[in-house]
Design a binder for these strands. Structure first.
Lengths: 279, 279
DNA sequence: CGGGATCGATACCTGTGAGGTATCGATCCC
DNA sequence: GGGATCGATACCTCACAGGTATCGATCCCG
């Protein structure tokens, strides 16, 4: 199986439309139709059910969609990591969610700088759920993930830190007089709904609550008295002065882990992980 | 990057010889030379240093060898799993080392057969270190691995069982009179060296000790008074009558884990894992 | 019910490039 | 210094990826 065939199939399987998939791939529709037919013939497997009105995945087709995405990520990773390895000073790309782990990351980078194997660390901040993809397709070498929000499936990890969560409220809110609250106290505050975050493709779940893309948007909404939030307690160090926090006893604990692709072999990465575990 | 280019490069990088690599790939040498040159040009990276006498990998080349192998395994897995998914009764392929985990595996298969999501389980036995490869390239769906011997890098796992190890000796050996021994007692027994096992490519490490490929060879050598061995205590249930065992106090504990590719999604596999953890 | 719109498949053409053979040039070995 | 080894180059050929035009089926709507 050629990776070109996989790219074509994944495009069609995602769009469920030959015309749009062809446009996305920058080719005409007929060669795409033929390529998919040929792939099906070579595999001896029907991947798509097509009528002239709709295209749907067969069972085998959805297996190939999942496996094919993983394979294409691996191929892209091979490409990117090879290019990077050839640069005079390769460095490491560390990726983490914007607005999280500031304190921990700063300490990590400081401590790492003293290591004899240290190389330049390029810190990239990205949106929700994007880190795993970046590790998989070679755009990043190592990530700071936050359980239970992020998935560590397929990566090696070391736990770095576990913390409780706080309810973040506008300064002066009545709940702030309490020493601590429960999740039930903050999930249905009148006029202060919890925000919604986009998933990995940028789509928001249905339901109440304002849509937010980053913490600065969120903080502003809370300050305006339009939302509340539950965040890890490390956010306290950089909380705006017009916001305040109170511990939430029964919120899930947040664990920060350092994660990397399992077959990584660089001394620079090994040193970074070692540094992180010794923090 | 096309998977054909990766296959070509991996062949050359493994053989370090264009002629042999071409033969292995079933093509002539000149097109292979050109394909590698073109790959280097497209990547903008030197992958190989060649003189007319020797071919060696550059740093970037060894990165591409490692990443390329992983990517090719993923592509092959996509192919195989898709074909299997299209069969009327897909079933699961479980792989484990020959001669290990007999008892546990039998109990697992028994318990699983009662599960409502159960499908046919095809048990494959394989050599040392081959299981990880089979999980990665789609020949297997799930494996029983034994820590610390096998690597679980890149897989999801659940621990099933931990056991101590025994020294296996010819019946009547003087050490058998003791209630237990230490590793130091068995590593240098006169005339009874510990055996050597092949690594994942079938190569034996240098050193003393007979080369063995499976446990039946090993048992025969021990019975002949030519070797000793340290094995997990579960081997006791099927030990030959001309052998005997004594616990080794400070041998590393052996943990049996069930492992599967992290992006697996089948209910049949989920049920098998659930069954295993409840044993 | 009929005309137009939508969408995947088919027919047919073209150019690129993968792969073959013959040979060169450099290096090593005896 | 002659032969052997090995990767690179030159040159040819044909398979196939990709393009355009068009068909045939289905749906929508007046």
């Amino acid at each position: 199986m050629e990776s070109r065939e996989l790219r074509y199939f994944v495009a069609v399987a995602e769009e469920l439309h030959f015309g749009r998939a062809a446009e996305r791939l920058g080719i005409a529709q007929p060669p795409l139709s033929r390529a998919i037919q040929q792939l099906e013939r070579r595999l001896g497997v029907d991947l798509l059910e097509r009528t002239s009105r709709a295209v749907t995945l067969t069972k085998a087709g959805s297996v190939l969609l999942r496996e094919g995405r993983a394979a294409l990520d691996a191929v892209e990773a091979a490409d990117r990591r090879t290019r990077r390895a050839a640069k005079p000073h390769p460095g490491l790309v560390l990726v983490t969610k914007a607005g999280s782990a500031g304190e921990l990351l700063a300490r990590l980078l400081d401590a790492y700088a003293a290591d004899p194997f240290a190389v330049t660390v390029d810190v990239q901040l990205c949106g929700v759920g994007e880190q795993e993809r970046m590790l998989r397709d070679g755009r990043a070498d190592v990530a700071l993930l936050h359980l239970p929000f992020d998935s560590t499936l397929g990566f090696d990890t070391e736990e770095l830190h576990t913390e409780n969560q706080l309810a973040i409220l506008p300064r002066g809110h009545e709940l702030l007089s309490r020493p601590h609250v429960k999740m039930a106290d903050v999930t249905d505050l009148p006029g202060l709904p919890l925000p919604r975050w986009p998933d990995h493709v940028g789509v928001y779940a249905d339901g109440p609550g304002p849509k937010v893309r980053d913490t600065s948007q969120l903080y502003q909404l809370i300050a305006l008295g339009r939302a509340a939030a539950v965040l890890p307690e490390s956010c306290r160090t950089h909380l705006r002065s017009d916001l305040a926090a109170v511990p939430v006893l029964d919120a899930p604990k947040v664990t920060t882990v350092i994660a990397w692709p399992p077959h990584s072999r660089s001394q620079a990465l090994a040193a970074l992980v070692r540094t992180a575990t010794l923090l």
